[in-house]
């Protein structure tokens, strides 16, 4: 794997048949992301942010072109290989948190490690570390229904980073949160990005998120219209 380019897309298209016509969700997307970036795919609804994020997360495959993620060409991956890539190297954070309701906070965070067959003692250390990073060590035994929106998203972040993935993909992570919680969440992710050198890529149109981003890739109708690198640090306002 070439560490300088964690992600590289070339001539990426995603098309959906819509009756007699075809909807082009991604139109010739060429992008590179380096290790440790804190970047965002920015644009209005329907611009292709989530579609691109899904392809980068190997949840979907492109119709044309190539998407190389952590040295693996997504378009060539079998279902099981894609699952392995996600399990080992990619963490996801969703807008609606997607916590498993019958599990406790601890068990939710532990889940990706269970899929990796990590020993119980090691899992315990990793889960408690992750909960400490997000400041929820004292809520390990709580159920998701007992948490606030902000707390739930922090659990989702802990779940995404517990296996220390190279890449975390966050789809509108603050859309269901108020300003204070959004700020706390973003601060947490900025800190993790710095401490763990984890690459974070967001799909967002939320101003609260955008001010933390060090790179903004603007999408419109599936095309990259602007790729902006912000030189200064914004997270410590």
């Amino acid at each position: 794997m070439n560490n300088s380019h964690l992600i590289k897309t070339e001539g990426l298209y995603k098309k959906y048949p819509m009756g007699p016509t075809t909807l082009v969700a991604l139109d010739n997307v060429n992008l590179n992301f380096k290790k440790g970036e804190f970047a965002g795919l920015v644009g209005p609804s329907g611009s292709g942010k989530t579609t691109l994020l899904n392809i980068l997360g190997s949840l979907d495959s492109p119709t044309e072109g190539s998407a190389e993620v952590l040295g693996e060409k997504v378009e060539n991956l079998e279902h099981k290989e894609a699952a392995k890539l996600r399990n080992n190297h990619i963490g996801f954070i969703f807008q609606t948190f997607n916590l498993l309701p019958v599990y406790t906070v601890y068990e939710n965070v532990e889940f990706p490690l269970l899929l990796q067959n990590i020993s119980e003692s090691e899992r315990r250390l990793m889960v408690m570390d992750a909960l400490e990073w997000v400041g929820l060590s004292d809520r390990a035994d709580s159920r998701p229904t007992q948490l606030s929106g902000g707390q739930s998203q922090r659990v989702a972040i802990a779940r995404a980073i517990v296996k220390k993935p190279a890449l975390v993909l966050a789809d509108e992570p603050t859309a269901n949160l108020d300003a204070q919680n959004s700020h706390n969440i973003m601060e947490t992710m900025v800190k993790l990005n710095k401490d763990l050198e984890t690459t974070f890529i967001f799909a967002t149109h939320d101003e609260k998120v955008m001010k933390y981003l060090r790179r903004k890739v603007y999408l419109d109708d599936g095309k990259i219209v602007k790729d902006e690198v912000i030189k200064h640090e914004l997270s410590k306002e």
Binding site: K80, A83, K84, R86, N87, N98, P112, L115, Q116
Partner: peptide, 14 residues
Amino acid sequence: RKEMGTLMAMGMTR
């Protein structure tokens, strides 16, 4: 369905 999607996103195979 969402739970299944989440499990798949976390790396669980079909």
